[in-house]
Amino acid sequence: MTLQFSVLASGSTGNSIYVETDDQALLVDAGLSGKQMDLLFKQIGRDPKKLSGIFVTHEHSDHIKGVGVFARKYQLPIYANEKTWRVMEPQLGEIPTDLKFTFPTDSVRTFGKLDIESFAVSHDAAEPMFYIFHYEGKKLAIITDTGYVNDRMIGKIKNADYFIFESNHDVEMLRMGKYPWSVKRRILSDVGHISNEDAALAMSECIGDQTKGIYLAHLSKDNNMKELARMSVTQILKKKGFAVGESFSLYDTDPKIPTPIKTI
């Protein structure tokens, strides 16, 4: 009984995560064009025709750009909470009623032996939420697009086998960068994105005995670098007494190149 996943794409240009069990194949978001999504599936050696559904986190285009196209092409059910449906539906194009499903925030839905749990995050969207996958005692937690990580979120995702965790920006790079102040203020706000440092501090509260790996996700292409994110997170976790690279590993993600399929 295996739980497998690949971060197909992660960053401000588009986000999508593939999750597979023995009897389910699912997508969290499809923030790239249908054509790009097909290419990503080829790169991981999986067939989108075998997908059982798309789970949407929120309505921003870097998370839903390909959702409508992909759902129509492969007849895929789409799951999202009511407020997200309301604002994203006009962006998706025509979706048949039998492919539209509501997945409330802070609830659990079961697909075969897989339990999928949704939880709220803090982001400037209608009702943003992310997902935890529970399968045969294994746990995969996804948390990006949040301005902070509070105790409630930590309680939900704690002690996952693997995390896909936002590490969006380096604060100094952002402050010194070319973005207008209004955009900088939005990113740094409680409904923006989490920095490398704050991500690491949150991770230090979430890592448990079961944890084997953390994927650093949703890196800003202008205000972060893979090496910098990894170094910043590693330094803070080591200061907190964690044996990074020994008891668990840090992994990069990329806007265009999927991570190799990981089996939990």
Results as ranks from 00 to 15, higher is better:
residue 143 I to R: 01
residue 165 F to C: 14
residue 231 M to Q: 10
residue 37 M to R: 11
residue 116 I to W: 00
residue 52 S to M: 07
residue 42 K to M: 11
residue 224 N to P: 10
residue 48 P to A: 01
residue 116 I to L: 12
residue 206 C to L: 07
residue 2 T to D: 13
residue 154 I to V: 15
residue 217 A to R: 05
residue 163 F to P: 04
residue 234 T to Q: 14
residue 125 A to G: 04
residue 19 V to R: 07
residue 10 S to G: 09
residue 244 V to R: 05
residue 263 T to H: 06
residue 155 G to V: 08
residue 132 I to P: 01
residue 56 V to W: 02
residue 226 K to Y: 02
residue 5 F to E: 10
residue 49 K to H: 11
residue 190 D to W: 01
residue 228 L to N: 09
residue 13 T to P: 00
residue 162 Y to G: 10
residue 174 L to W: 00
residue 119 F to P: 11
residue 110 T to V: 14
residue 173 M to I: 06
residue 22 D to F: 02
residue 36 Q to A: 13
residue 173 M to F: 09
residue 168 N to L: 05
residue 218 H to N: 09
residue 75 Q to T: 10
residue 69 V to K: 13
residue 102 T to I: 14
residue 144 T to V: 14
residue 144 T to Q: 11
residue 9 A to I: 03
residue 103 F to P: 03
residue 56 V to K: 13
residue 219 L to Y: 03
residue 5 F to P: 09
residue 229 A to W: 00
residue 233 V to Q: 06
residue 2 T to P: 15
residue 120 A to G: 03
residue 20 E to D: 02
residue 35 K to E: 13
residue 154 I to D: 10
residue 75 Q to F: 01
residue 236 I to D: 02
residue 262 K to A: 03
residue 119 F to N: 12
residue 66 G to T: 03
residue 141 A to N: 06
residue 223 N to G: 12
residue 7 V to I: 13
residue 28 V to T: 09
residue 164 I to Q: 09
residue 134 H to D: 07
residue 244 V to S: 05
residue 169 H to P: 03
residue 94 E to Y: 06
residue 36 Q to G: 10
residue 227 E to C: 03
residue 259 T to D: 02
residue 233 V to K: 04
residue 228 L to I: 15
residue 227 E to S: 15
residue 90 P to C: 10
residue 255 P to R: 12
residue 228 L to K: 15
residue 248 F to T: 06
residue 243 A to Y: 01
residue 153 M to A: 04
residue 23 D to V: 11
residue 96 P to V: 03
residue 193 H to R: 14
residue 261 I to H: 03
residue 3 L to V: 04
residue 211 T to E: 02
residue 198 D to A: 14
residue 95 I to R: 11
residue 95 I to V: 15
residue 104 P to G: 14
residue 241 G to V: 12
residue 103 F to W: 02
residue 96 P to A: 08
residue 114 L to H: 06
residue 113 K to E: 05
residue 22 D to W: 01
residue 2 T to S: 15
residue 176 M to Q: 15
residue 28 V to D: 01
residue 130 F to I: 05
residue 139 K to W: 00
residue 60 H to R: 14
residue 154 I to R: 10
residue 246 E to I: 10
residue 256 K to I: 12
residue 69 V to S: 08
residue 190 D to Y: 00
residue 134 H to V: 05
residue 90 P to M: 08
residue 26 L to Q: 05
residue 227 E to G: 09
residue 13 T to S: 14
residue 174 L to C: 04
residue 205 E to S: 12
residue 18 Y to R: 06
residue 130 F to M: 11
residue 171 V to P: 03
residue 107 S to E: 10
residue 121 V to H: 07
residue 26 L to F: 00
residue 83 K to C: 05
residue 141 A to L: 04
residue 206 C to Q: 07
residue 162 Y to A: 07
residue 194 I to C: 06
residue 56 V to G: 09
residue 71 A to E: 06
residue 127 E to M: 06
residue 231 M to E: 12
residue 253 T to K: 05
residue 230 R to G: 04
residue 122 S to A: 10
